[in-house]
C-alpha cells in the first residue's frame, strides 16, 4: 500500500503540490491524469525520494521515503519523463548497465522483461538514440524493470509517442500488472484514464477526484448534449450569449453543451440554434467521458 498524507511542496512561489492525500493499493494500476504543470512529476519525485515534501507523510509499503530512501530506491523501477537512456550506448549496453547498477543480471530477471525486450532484441546493437519513440519506450521500460521492482513508477511514459506505440505500451502494462507489480503512471492524455484501475484527476497541484474511471463518469449528473453544427465558431459565440448556457466548448468536431436548467430537451436547444440562423446536423444527449468530467471539475476553479 502506498499512502500520501497531506503532502505539500512549493518551489519559490509556485505551490506545485497542494495538500494531496490518497491511497494506492498494492497490485493496482493507478493513473495520475492532468496537464503539464499539474504537479505529477513533483509528486512522483517525492514518492521515489528524490524530493522531500515540505509538509505531510508518505508511506511506501511501510517505508518512509525521507528516512529510508536507500531501501525505497531499491524497490522502485522509475522511468522519468525525459527518456533516461544513454543515446550513445546500444540497446544491449543500456540494459546491461542498468542491470549491473541495480546489482542483478539480465538473465536473472529476463522472464519479467521477455515479452517487451523480445520486440527490440533484433536491434540490440543499435544505439538508443537511433530508435523510434516506441522502441525507446520499450527499452526504457525494460531498464526500469530489470531489477524486479515492487513498484513501477512511470512519469508520462506515452508523451511524444504515436498512437500505435501507446496502445502497445498500455497492453504491456496490463501484463505487468498481472504479474503483481504495482504500477503508478502519469499522463496528460484523458483518453488513457480508462485504461487504469483507478485515476486521480490533478490540476494546479490539487487532486480533484480519485476513483475508478467508470465511477468518475457516473458521478457526472448533469445532462450533457453534443451539438453537431456547420460553423463551430459562430455557434459557440451564439450559445454563450444564451442566458441558459452553463458551459459550452468544442469537443472534436462537435460542441458539448451544458444547460443551467435541469429538464431541458434537445428540441429546445435546436429551436434556439434555428432562431440564431445557425445550421446544425443534430443535437443529442450523450454520456460524458473523462475529459468532460475533468472540464466540469476544473471549470469553476480556473
Amino acid at each position: 500500500m502506498i499512502e500520501f498524507k497531506n503532502i505539500h511542496k512549493s518551489f519559490e512561489d509556485v505551490h506545485a503540490v497542494d495538500d494531496v492525500s490518497l491511497r494506492i493499493e498494492e497490485g493496482e494500476l493507478f493513473g495520475f491524469i492532468g496537464p503539464d504543470g499539474a504537479g505529477k512529476t513533483t509528486l512522483f519525485r517525492m514518492l521515489n525520494s528524490l524530493l522531500i515534501p515540505d509538509e505531510g507523510q508518505i508511506n511506501l509499503f511501510g517505508l518512509d521515503p525521507v528516512k529510508e530512501y536507500k531501501k525505497v530506491r531499491q524497490i522502485i523501477g522509475y522511468m522519468p519523463g525525459k527518456f533516461s537512456l544513454y543515446y550513445d550506448l546500444s540497446i544491449e549496453e543500456n540494459l546491461q548497465f542498468f542491470a549491473t547498477v541495480f546489482g542483478t543480471t539480465i538473465e536473472e530477471n529476463y522472464h519479467l522483461i521477455e515479452d517487451i525486450y523480445k520486440q527490440i532484441e533484433p536491434f540490440k546493437k543499435r544505439p538508443a538514440g537511433k530508435l523510434s519513440g516506441g522502441m525507446k519506450q520499450k527499452l526504457a521500460l525494460s531498464c526500469a524493470l530489470i531489477h524486479k521492482p515492487r513498484l513501477l513508477l512511470l512519469d508520462e511514459p506515452t508523451t511524444g509517442v504515436d498512437a500505435v506505440s501507446r496502445r502497445e505500451f498500455w497492453e504491456m502494462l496490463q501484463k505487468l500488472k498481472e504479474k503483481g507489480i504495482t504500477i503508478v503512471v502519469s499522463t496528460p492524455y484523458m483518453d488513457e484514464a480508462g485504461l487504469c484501475d483507478r485515476v486521480a484527476l490533478m490540476q494546479n497541484g490539487k487532486i480533484h477526484a480519485v476513483a475508478p474511471p467508470s465511477e468518475i463518469v457516473s458521478q457526472f449528473s448533469d445532462p450533457l448534449y453534443t451539438i453537431k453544427v456547420k460553423n463551430n465558431y459562430k455557434s459557440l459565440q451564439a450559445l454563450r450569449q444564451w442566458e441558459f448556457c452553463e458551459n459550452v466548448y468544442p469537443f472534436g468536431e462537435t460542441l458539448h453543451y451544458l444547460d443551467k436548467r435541469n429538464n431541458v430537451s434537445a428540441d429546445v436547444i435546436e429551436a434556439y440554434l434555428s432562431s440564431q440562423q445557425l445550421t446544425f446536423d443534430k443535437v443529442e444527449m450523450i454520456q460524458p467521458d473523462i475529459e468532460d468530467c475533468f472540464i466540469a471539475l476544473t471549470h469553476n476553479v480556473g
Binding site: 503539464d36 508523451t159 511524444g160 490540476q203 466548448y249 468544442p250 472540464i295
Partner: peptide, 10 residues
C-alpha cells in the same frame, strides 16, 4: 496543443 489542460486546449 500537446500537454495543456482540456480547458486551455479548447
Amino acid at each position: 496543443t500537446g500537454g495543456v489542460d482540456p480547458i486551455t486546449r479548447r
